[in-house]
Amino acid sequence: MITVYGFSPSGNCHKVKLLLEQLGRRLDRDYRWIETNSAIGETRTPGYLAKNPNGKVPMIELDDGCVLVESNAILCWLADGTSFLPADPWQKAQALSWLFFEQYSHEPYIAVARFICGWTPADSPRRAGLPVLRQCGHAALAVMERHLAANPWFTGSDYGIADVALYAYTCVAPHGGIALDAYPALRDWLSRVEATPGFLPLPAPEPAAQVLIDQSH
Rank of each mutant, 00 (worst) to 15 (best):
I40T: 11
I40A: 05
I40H: 14
I40V: 11
G41K: 02
E42P: 03
E42T: 02
T43D: 04
T43M: 08
T43G: 03
R44W: 13
R44N: 11
P46G: 07
P46C: 08
G47F: 12
Y48G: 01
Y48T: 04
L49P: 08
L49I: 05
L49D: 12
A50N: 09
K51N: 10
N52G: 13
N52P: 15
P53E: 14
P53S: 11
N54S: 13
N54Y: 08
N54C: 14
N54G: 14
G55R: 10
K56R: 15
K56Q: 14
V57L: 07
V57Q: 01
P58C: 02
P58H: 05
M59P: 10
I60H: 08
I60K: 02
I60W: 01
I60N: 03
E61I: 00
E61W: 04
E61D: 05
L62W: 12
L62H: 14
D63Y: 04
D63H: 06
D64G: 05
D64N: 14
D64P: 07
G65R: 09
C66V: 10
C66G: 13
C66L: 15
V67Q: 09
L68W: 10
L68A: 13
L68V: 15
L68F: 09
V69N: 11
E70P: 02
N72W: 00
A73N: 11
A73F: 10
A73L: 12
I74N: 07
I74F: 12
I74K: 03
L75A: 00
L75V: 00
C76G: 12
W77G: 02
W77S: 12
W77P: 00
W77A: 10
W77Y: 15
L78I: 05
L78A: 05
L78H: 05
A79N: 06
D80V: 04
D80K: 12
D80R: 06
D80L: 13
G81N: 05
G81H: 01
G81M: 08
T82K: 06
